[in-house]
């Protein structure tokens, strides 16, 4: 077992638990302000986006907008699939099959 990964798992576990229990126990003693609630509502889409956009556009250290970058058309089609289906399974299957199909075609 890799010690760094074990430490990371426990660190992540503690960090996560620290977001789960406090307000469950100390609520009612001063609510969270409306502005904070609003700010926090944008965190999930912001962080999740920052994780995938570089994977889509960057290949070997630079932005790749060429037709050879199959992730771009596949991402667009997956966005449409997610928008119309609102279904995780359909989005994932559409995404993977688009990349697979484009790879076969080009």
């Amino acid at each position: 077992m890799n010690t760094e990964i074990i430490l990371l798992i426990f660190g992540a576990a503690i960090a996560t638990y620290l977001t789960r229990f406090p307000l469950m126990i100390f609520s009612g003693r001063g609510d969270i302000s409306k502005k904070t609630v609003k700010f926090m509502s944008f965190i999930a889409p912001a962080v999740l986006t920052s994780l995938i956009v570089p994977i889509i556009f960057i290949r070997e250290g630079s932005v790749n907008l060429s037709l050879g970058n199959l992730y771009i058309p596949a991402a667009l089609i997956t966005v449409l699939a997610a928008y119309y289906s609102r279904n995780m399974l359909i989005s994932v299957i559409t995404g993977i099959s688009t990349v697979g199909l484009l790879m076969l075609l080009f």
Binding site: L48, I56, A74, T78, V79, V92, I96
Partner: peptide, 14 residues
Amino acid sequence: FAFVAAFIGMIVPM
């Protein structure tokens, strides 16, 4: 790409 697609599936409804 499954990871990218799964995240797109989470982001779009948000």
